[in-house]
Design a protein around this nucleic acid. Structure first.
Lengths: 138, 138
DNA sequence: AGCGAAGATGACGTGGACGTAAACGAGACG
DNA sequence: CGTCTCGTTTACGTCCACGTCATCTTCGCT
């Protein structure tokens, strides 16, 4: 009846907390914290956590979201978009709307980022010129 | 469209704390906090703060920096690049280094943002297809 | 059997970025 | 004149995202 085959011969199916920490450069505390906030759902071998590919994919998205300045709660909601199952089907179209908004956010952020990069480059050029000439032009 | 605080006050030399709050959608506490952290330098009329165009320009950069996920301290260092005076000249090249680091951050963020936008689009396509093909028979 | 390392579970601490309340001062105004 | 509103300072409180002990198991190894 169970057609899900679990072979841990090829790539590692699950990872320990330490392997995760090494792979993603985070602390155990961080991973436990993320689990407590329901961003990760490692399975258990007795007491010990075992992180699946799903957890790894989610963690990757979490860390990226953080670099974009999202809060963990915002990220948690976004993650739901990537891991849809039938139980959420009724909310799919709502999810899609959220995703569309998020996409708009990202594109706006990209535009602003482009502008900021441009400005910073310009400013650095100016300052660089100032440094080049011995005396700043009053 | 009437002459709002923005179009009126923004053209003034200085603005009160309330005008600033209305114009930038921040609280007084935030502005005082930024001053205490030396991100803003409002002049004083007795006790009262008066925010100059310089403060407004800086605040704009501060808020943008925040949207990019920079800390106030990182932003403070960047701001020095935009408002250079002779007294800082000796630290200019250090400032430039910091700016270069931030520029790297932003460019990486830009690349990552592109990737994220792409992935999100893909994911939305998948979800959209699910919605289309999985319609209930009613 | 003993030991150390890895991992778990509280529980308290911390730094950043403000929120919020208390108490005060200075103009504006009816 | 008293009262209101705006603003100030001081100071404690809060939320988030973990850091940092202090125990407590549980493996793996000698």
């Amino acid at each position: 009846m169970f057609d899900s085959i679990e072979s841990h011969a090829m790539t590692q199916e699950t990872m320990t907390i330490r392997e995760m920490c090494d792979a993603f450069d985070v602390t155990p505390r961080t991973l436990r914290f993320y689990e407590s906030k329901e961003l990760l759902f490692p399975i258990r071998d007795g007491q010990r956590r075992l992180f699946t590919r799903r957890d790894r994919a989610r963690l990757k998205l979490i860390l990226r979201g953080k670099r974009f300045g999202f809060s963990l709660e915002e990220i948690r909601q976004l993650l739901d978009l990537y891991y849809v199952d039938d139980s959420q089907e009724t909310q799919l179209s709502r999810t899609l709307d959220i995703a569309n908004d998020r996409l708009g956010d990202m594109e706006r952020q990209r535009a602003e980022l482009d502008e900021a990069i441009d400005e910073l480059r310009t400013q650095m050029q100016l300052v660089g010129d100032m440094l080049a000439s011995n005396k700043p032009a009053a």
